[in-house]
Design a binder for these strands. Structure first.
Length: 768
DNA sequence: AGGTACTTATAGAGT
DNA sequence: ATAAGTACCT
């Protein structure tokens, strides 16, 4: 019996399937479990999977939840429409695109595309490029869209206009208008448009609203605390017919207000939905009592919250270990030692550890230390796979084939690899496109019939390029994503171009492209079963495995959707990325004022509260043990910055800390409890000098030799083709050698682990 | 048109 | 520290 697996509160929340329900779920209280069982329960009650819509925060969460539901109730669950707001709504928008004057193949612009559009608008309007920085403008436009202000609304809104004038950027409204115009001309939507345009669709097309209201009799929303107004309104409209809506969230874990999420959605739920029932899940199954209590003591400092008491029956557990170290390097080494010690003494595995931090840039020092200590790790965030240049290049080819009007894709690849179409030509094309009010591709195909200053030879090259792209476009609906994709990659010549470089980096890029081909393959061939389109209910086989669908999926993919793999590796990620995850051992690094809480958050009470919630999220990721570190000085943008420890440390009730605060002296790195000796190198050593310019060869000599490091002159003994042995990767053959001195690298093909790029100084390769 | 050398902006979380 | 943009040379 399904309900037997749940506690009392969870069961009550699951059983109430009619009406509006809000589940306030404390950290670790089995939120996902409750949601999963609720959907399974709906199916068990005979409700059709077609009538269920479930919106989650990541695609991966949706996938996992679906799998679990299939386990519980069988294959019918496959037809439940489940995914992130953006991916589900993108699918609906594609189906109904014509009603909005879009084509089905519209492109989804990522942040880079958006910024580049803004940049060219600012340039053409001859505005001050420093004042009108793309990120500032985009942020402003994004906030407007998330609150459903169209560019016309914006232009008529005195409040917004005044705000812009106050910050000396009165032209934002006009940029917004032009930006939207250009996106539409390119048949593109940005992330916010996916939500905005669905609102427009539901507002202007009563038949469509009715259709989806009929269809979605039961709506579930996960992570409700992180929804914005635009999302809120969609849910509200869709649910207003049947009124069966269930939202799950935790106001204490709301951490996305910077991208428009508003905690009001949770706080006002009762007002918005009459007769709403609210359930609270307060028993934590994840963490020790000490961790739960410490987290409670921190979040108590926030004024705005729904009262709840998270408690646990788990063991009391260890106190939180807080360590203030001299530098970011020492912090990283301390973390490494602590990991090593726990692995040796407590039989922990690498994958049981997560190192969390506030900003992506902090990963660098940590990575370096982990590599030096031969601790395997996996980095999340930063440059994700799909954001890599070579991948974006290939995807731009796909995009242009899929949507000829995609100007950003056109600009990216028209002369990459170089085919003799330079800046002058591109500017002339832009001019023509503006005159004809159409896309760059459209003027390019008919270039020979238009008057232009472009010479014949160049014209021919452009026309030929477009002819090829067009010929691929014709195959979009008939060829699957893999066949077409591989063909386009061959046509692009990017792999040949990279091959010519003959560097390790280029080889790596080629590998990444192969990886992309793999993902095309698994996209096309995944799941041998009959596939059911959750949206239309159609049974489909290979039909929808097109390149366009692949692109849509890829552009909405995030790091959180990548598999954590079964690999035994320490995980490095930002706290934002750690939302919803849990680890036996958690480190929170960089607990310093102006870093966490971030300097930018200290101006308003609301922002500081959000930072505190972020800290709360970080603490509550830990199951067994929590370790917090800070550094007195660290490098930020190439300069040395000194900091005090974070105010949030002082907010933890000292009762839950293993040692009194204000430890002025740094402890040796291996010293976990402040009282034992250690054999690790971490005696006083010179920190890099203050002046950034002075990090010359002299001061480099001052640095301690890395453990396992080999003097540079010893690195010349390696040769391509040699058999070598690596401590953790085993046997392999050297394929490529590159670089000089300390940065000399080798690409080695290992028997079991495949190709790896190794820094020879650290890798300790033995020649066989 | 394409490549290299120098300058400058940018470092807050991410769909 | 680094990526991206610009100026200048071939």
């Amino acid at each position: 019996m399904l309900l037997d697996d749940l506690n009392l509160q969870q069961r009550e929340a699951v059983k109430q399937i009619e009406g509006a329900v809000m589940i306030i779920a404390g950290a670790g209280s089995g939120k996902t479990r409750t949601l999963t069982y609720k959907i399974a329960y709906l199916l068990e009650q005979g409700i059709s999977p077609y009538n269920i819509l479930a919106l989650t925060f990541t695609n991966k969460a949706a996938e996992e939840m679906k799998e679990r539901i299939i386990d519980l109730t069988g294959n019918t669950a496959k037809s439940i429409l489940m995914g992130t707001f953006h991916s589900v709504f993108a699918r609906i928008l594609r189906l109904e695109a014509d009603r909005l004057g879009y084509v089905r193949n519209f492109t989804i612009y990522d942040t880079d595309d958006s910024k580049s559009v803004i940049k060219s608008i600012v340039k053409e309007k001859h505005l001050d490029e420093k004042l009108y920085s793309p990120s500032f403008i985009l942020d402003r436009i994004s906030k407007a869209k998330n609150n459903l202000f169209s560019s016309t609304d914006y232009l008529n809104n005195t409040e917004l206009l005044t705000e812009d004038r106050m910050v000396k950027r009165p032209e934002i409204a006009n940029i917004y208008k032009e930006y939207n115009f250009r996106l539409r001309r390119a048949m593109a939507m940005d992330f916010d448009d996916l939500l905005f345009n669905l609102n427009v669709l539901l507002r202007d097309c009563p038949d469509i609203l009715d259709k989806y209201q009929q269809r979605f009799k039961y709506i579930m929303v996960d992570e409700y605390q992180d929804t914005n107004y635009s999302q809120y309104l969609i849910i509200k409209k869709l649910s207003s017919k049947h009124g069966n809506i269930c939202v799950v969230g935790d106001d204490a874990q709301s951490i996305y207000s910077f991208r428009g999420a508003t905690i009001r959605n949770i706080l006002n739920f009762k007002k918005d939905y009459k007769n709403a029932t609210i359930y609270k899940l307060e028993q934590n199954y994840r963490s020790t009592q000490n961790i739960v209590n410490a987290a409670n003591s921190v979040i108590a400092n926030n004024e705005n919250q729904i009262s709840k008491e998270v408690w646990t029956e788990n063991e009391y557990g260890r106190k939180i270990n807080y360590m203030n170290l001299d530098s970011d390097r020492e912090e990283a080494f301390y973390i490494c030692s602590a990991i090593r010690q726990r692995i040796e003494e407590e039989y922990a595995h690498y994958k049981h550890f997560a190192v969390l931090y506030r900003t992506n840039m902090q990963s660098r020092a940590l990575e370096e230390a982990l590599r030096l200590r031969n601790i395997p790790y996996r980095l999340y965030g930063g440059i994700s796979f799909y954001a890599r240049k070579e991948i974006k290049d290939i995807l731009a080819y796909f995009r242009l084939v899929s949507n000829n009007n995609d100007n950003e894709a056109f600009l990216r690849i028209i002369n990459y690899p170089a085919r003799g179409i330079g800046n002058t030509t591109i500017n002339r094309l832009k001019l023509l496109a503006a005159e004809q009010n159409t896309s760059l591709f459209n003027v390019s195909v008919q270039l020979n019939t238009l008057p232009s200053d472009i010479n014949k030879a160049t014209r021919d090259k452009i026309v030929e390029f477009c002819r090829m792209i067009s010929s691929y476009s014709k195959l979009l609906d008939t060829e699957n994503a893999l066949n077409l994709g591989e063909e386009i990659i061959r046509f692009s010549g990017i792999k040949i171009e990279l091959h010519k470089e003959e560097t390790i980096e280029a080889e790596e890029k080629i590998n990444n492209i192969e990886e992309l081909i793999n993902s095309l393959q698994s996209f096309v061939f995944k799941d041998d079963d009959i596939l059911i389109d959750e949206l239309t209910g159609e049974e489909i086989y290979q039909q929808n495995r097109t390149l366009t669908t692949f692109l849509s999926q890829v552009s909405l993919m995030t790091d959180a959707d990548m598999d954590l793999e079964d690999n035994d590796k320490v995980v490095l990620m930002t706290i934002h990325a750690a939302k919803g995850l849990e680890f036996p051992y958690v480190f929170i690094a960089g607990m310093e004022e102006n870093l966490f809480p971030s300097m930018l958050s200290l101006t308003s009470r609301a922002d500081t509260e959000e930072e505190r919630r972020l800290f709360y999220v970080a603490i509550t990721r830990a199951q067994k043990e929590l370790l917090i570190t800070s550094a007195r000085m660290r490098f930020r943008y190439g300069e040395l910055v000194f900091s005090e420890h974070s105010r949030f440390i002082d907010e933890i009730d000292p009762e839950y800390l293993s040692q009194p605060l204000h430890t002025k002296k740094a402890f040796p790195a291996g010293n976990l409890n402040g009282n034992s000796n250690s054999n690790t190198q971490n005696t006083k050593k010179p920190i890099l000098t203050l002046k950034k310019k002075s990090v010359s060869s002299d001061s480099k000599l001052e640095l301690p030799k890395p453990i396992g490091g080999v003097p540079a002159h010893m690195l010349n003994k390696y040769e391509v083709g040699q058999q070598v042995v690596h401590a953790s990767f085993g046997k392999g053959i050297i394929l490529i050698l590159d670089g000089e001195g300390d940065s000399r690298k080798a690409v080695v093909e290992f028997e079991d682990k495949g190709k790896k790029t190794l820094i020879l100084r650290f890798a300790k390769l033995e020649i066989l």
